[in-house]
Each structure stands twice: as C-alpha cells, then as structure tokens.
C-alpha cells in the first residue's frame, strides 16, 4: 500500500496505519510525513483541556454530533496517561464517544502519553497533520487532564477550550496563577450542578485582570450530558477562527506551533546522536566511573563530552 497516496485519498486503514508508524517512530514515517506536509494546513485544530472528570470526553462526543449536523468531517485525538511504572495504559475516552462509532465521517484515535508531559503525546502534532492531509475539516484533541501544566495544547491548537466544573477550584487556581494564555474559550460544564453561575461570575471577574488582547474570551455554560449549550460553544469556536483569520493571528499561531515543533525535533535529534555516540564506545561508562570516584566533576565531564563530539556533517 502506498500509504501517503492512500492517506490523501482518505483511506481509513492508511490513516490508521500511518499514525501507528508515527507513534512507533518507524523510520518510514518520516518520508511519508514529508510527502503529506504540503497537503496540510486547511484543517482546524481544537483543543479540549481541563482536569480529569470535568466531562471533556462527553463534551467532545456532543461537539462531534453538532459539527456533523454542520456537515463537517471530524477527527478526534484522545489522549490518556501512560503508566510510568509498566508503560501500559487504559485508553478510556473513546467509550464516551460511542454514538459516533458508526459515522463514516468521524475518525477517533486514542493515544497514550508514552512518557511525554504537558498533556499531549509526542506524536499528537504529527497525527493531527495526517488527519488534516486526509481531508478532515476539524481535528479535536482531548488532552490528558493532568491539571496545571498543560500548556502544550495551546501551542498546537488554533482554538483551545478549557473546561471546568462548578465548585472545582483547580482550573480557577490555574487562571489565578496567571495562565491566561492557554484558553481562548472557557467552558463551565455540568451546569446542571449548583454553583454554575457563581463559577461563571468568578471566572469573568478574573478575566478582567487578563492582559488585554483583541479577542474577548468568553465563559460559556454547558451540560454535556444533555447536549445543552453545545451549539453556542461551536458558534464561539467558529467565531474564534474568524477572528484568527481576519487579524492574521492564524498565521502567528502556526508560527508558534512550528517553532516549537522544530526546536523539539532538533533537540531530540541532537540528544539521540550524542547518546548513541557516547554509549557505543563505552565513553559514558568510563566517565561516570570517574565522576563517582571523584576524579572529575559532572560539569567538567559534560564539557569534555561536548568538546569531543564530531560535528554532524
């Protein structure tokens, strides 16, 4: 199977296979990505983040259905944590999206973080590009939901939605900590619970302290379980895209994304080639022994290793 060609044709097996190749860091993935890249750039990337249990998966399920009514082709990347102890994972977001399993225009893919922090997996960005190249109009990303440090999604997505629930201090704390740069939209889900209006008010008050930018962030209420407020949420997301396009911010966001990805790629490559070299000739072992027997300090050792490296072609 010519995977690149089939991905561009929208062949689901090819898309599925390609994401596996990316996740497994298969060398052929790189070549295929190179072929796909010119065909990306039209899909809109929407991030859904927030603490565990606030209803992100349920919300995504409803957003899919509503966007299907608007005739969009939807892909979802749902990320769950990989256990640091044994490397395994239970990927359970998908089960909340089961109403969409039989829709031919919906593609849901679950991923484990596989050692990455920041709420995404290392392959998320590339998986998004595969969906984009395959003709999906909107790519929804559900992050892990670790809490405070999920800044990565804001760098990848065009529009980031932070989800909170009434009575839960976490996200409000996050906002207080000055992380105003993450959300474009704030959703108070489970608005059927008491305290929803208080949460909205508190968040709006806090937003008054946010650095002034042209985009006026809004706080929306939803009841994901009852499909309440979802249309308004999609309207707001689409309004945000319009804003990005009209102000040239869309381009800026992509610059941020690819600067980040490029730096990551370069750093990763350098790290790998350095490790390969010092591990293969036994140098690492030798130097570690010297450090432990106090013949040399870790800093001097690091300098020595770096000085000894042959510059790569």
């Amino acid at each position: 199977m010519d995977i690149a060609k089939e991905v561009l044709n929208g062949n689901k097996r090819a898309v599925s296979r390609m994401i596996t190749l990316i996740e497994n860091k298969d060398p052929v993935a790189k070549e295929i990505i190179n072929e796909l890249y010119p065909h990306t750039g039209s899909g809109k990337i929407v991030g859904i983040t927030g603490p565990p249990g606030v209803g992100k998966s349920t919300l995504v399920d409803q957003m899919i259905k509503e966007w299907r009514k608007r005739d969009k082709k939807i892909a979802v990347v749902a990320i769950d944590p990989t256990s640091p102890f044994h490397g395994g994972a239970i990927l359970g977001d998908r089960i909340r999206m089961q109403d969409n399993f039989l829709d031919e225009n919906v593609f849901i893919r679950s991923m484990g973080t596989r050692g990455a922090y920041g709420g995404l997996s290392k392959s998320t960005g590339e998986a998004v590009n595969v969906f984009d190249a395959a003709g999906y109009d909107i790519i929804l990303i559900e992050t892990v939901g670790a809490g405070q440090v999920e800044v990565d999604i804001a760098k990848l997505a065009h529009t980031t939605t932070v989800v909170v629930v009434p009575g839960l201090g976490d996200a409000i704390q996050t906002m207080k900590a000055g992380m105003f740069e993450i959300p474009d939209i704030i959703v108070v889900n489970k608005a059927d619970l008491t305290g929803a209006d208080d949460a909205v008010m508190e968040l709006e008050l806090m937003l008054a302290w946010a650095p002034k930018i042209e985009w006026k962030m809004s706080v929306l209420k939803t009841i994901a379980l009852e499909n309440d407020g979802i249309e308004e949420l999609l309207d707001e997301v689409e309004r945000h895209w319009k804003y990005l396009e009209e102000t040239g911010m869309l381009y800026k966001r992509e610059e941020t994304r690819y600067e980040e990805e490029l730096v990551d790629l370069v750093t990763e490559n350098i790290k790998e080639s350095v490790l390969k070299e010092i591990k293969s000739n036994g140098k690492l072992d030798m130097i570690v022994k010297k450090i432990v027997s106090r013949k040399i300090t870790p800093y001097t050792a690091a300098d020595e290793i770096l000085a000894g490296l042959k510059p790569n072609k």
């Binding site: 256990s83 044994h86 395994g88 994972a89 990927l91 998908r94 089960i95 484990g112």
Partner: peptide
Amino acid sequence: LRNAGMEVIYLG
C-alpha cells in the same frame, strides 16, 4: 494487559 505494558482501548 495494561500492567503488562500494553495499551488497552476499553470499549465495554
């Protein structure tokens, strides 16, 4: 299977 290092998509 998760504890054996596999990724399990649990569907019910």
